[in-house]
């Protein structure tokens, strides 16, 4: 959908649709989500919790819970559709080509094995080392890259502080030199000082190693600091996507504007997504029209009946809103 005629994007997600089939009904967690990720690019994925960000990311790695179903779409990594691979080929993709930094690294490490062993495990499994011993230099290197002395690799996760554990998680995610790193709320459970450190570390590594990073967060200030491009999700669908400056200087979707309004001062990092009246839609009982309509201040008749499709209203600026049919957008600017 991007109009750049150059090399195909590193990751091209088309019409990703994921549902959860549960006894309580079908949850439309992600509907028709499309985006591209270029090499070395840092993409921010923003939205309230429960808007489908994490589900979309877990779908890419095919790590959904048992109730999850990818019912449509493609995820092309260098042209290969991840959803068409068989399970063992998919295992080879995980961590080696796309790795993930999970939220709350608290429980992301196995408590009864040393941190070093758990990093080495990934190397050995993907054939980058014959055994634990051979993996050791690389493990030390990785730990030192994130500012942990190699000797601490022989310690257990509970001997690490929260920030340290998250750094070790980052080291582990980089173990197999993946092309894409997905960071799912990497700073959520940490205090403010540590959050800043972790983001700085992520940004530095992204620059130095030329990684493509998808940063999932509900915190717009984080995006402003780290990302090149932003994708705003609401209720399982794309609301708006553009360069990071565009989001802050010229937000088009009413939801994005409400999000920004909740951040009067972007330099205040403790801000959260607050003060948008109403609740995010329940994904098993969606409104028939635009999913944001019940909370939107600029709602009109059409929004209640017809779902807006994402349209490119400015170069590289996509928005899914009836207010911004191509012409309407021009009026505003």
């Amino acid at each position: 959908m991007s109009e750049r005629p150059t090399a195909p994007p590193l990751l091209d997600v088309r019409d990703l649709t994921t549902r959860f089939i549960t006894p309580e009904g079908v949850f439309h967690a992600v509907e028709g989500l499309s985006f591209q990720l270029e090499r070395g690019e840092s993409l921010g994925l923003v939205g309230e919790s429960g808007c489908g960000k994490s589900t979309a990311m877990l779908s890419l790695l095919r790590l959904l819970p048992a109730a999850g179903r990818i019912v449509g779409g493609q995820a092309l990594l260098d042209g290969t559709d991840l959803f068409g691979l068989d399970e063992s080929d998919m295992r080879a993709v995980r961590w080696h080509r796309i790795s993930m930094i999970f939220q709350g690294a608290m429980n992301a490490f196995n408590p009864v094995r040393t941190v070093g062993a758990q990093i080495a495990e990934a190397l050995v499994f993907h054939g980058l080392a014959q055994d634990r011993g051979e993996a050791q230099p690389r493990v030390d290197e990785l730990l030192e890259m994130v500012g942990i002395t190699g000797a601490r690799g022989s310690q257990y996760p509970h001997q690490y502080s929260g920030g340290m554990r998250q750094r070790a998680m980052i080291a582990m995610a980089l173990a197999c030199s993946p092309q894409v790193v997905i960071a799912d709320e990497p700073t959520t459970a940490l205090d403010v000082m540590i959050q800043a450190q972790i983001l700085e570390l992520l940004e530095r590594l992204q620059r130095e190693l030329g990684l493509a990073v998808i940063l999932v967060t509900h915190d717009l200030s984080v995006v402003a600091e780290v990302c090149h491009r932003v994708l705003v999700m609401y209720g399982g669908v794309l609301a708006e996507s553009c360069e990071v400056d565009g989001i802050f200087n010229q937000p088009l979707h009413p939801y994005t504007r409400r999000l920004l309004a909740a951040f009067p001062d972007l330099s205040r990092p403790e801000g959260k997504l607050v003060s948008i009246p109403g609740y995010p839609p329940r994904l098993n009982a969606l409104p028939p029209g635009c999913r944001f309509a019940p909370r939107c201040e600029e709602v009109h008749e059409r929004c209640l009946q017809e779902r807006p499709k994402p349209r490119q209203v400015l170069p590289g600026h996509w928005v899914a809103c009836h207010l911004h049919e191509a012409g309407a957008a021009n009026d505003r600017t």
Partner: peptide, 12 residues
Amino acid sequence: DYILTAKAKGLS
């Protein structure tokens, strides 16, 4: 969570 991590790491 650490089982999900292990799975993400590509373990069978």
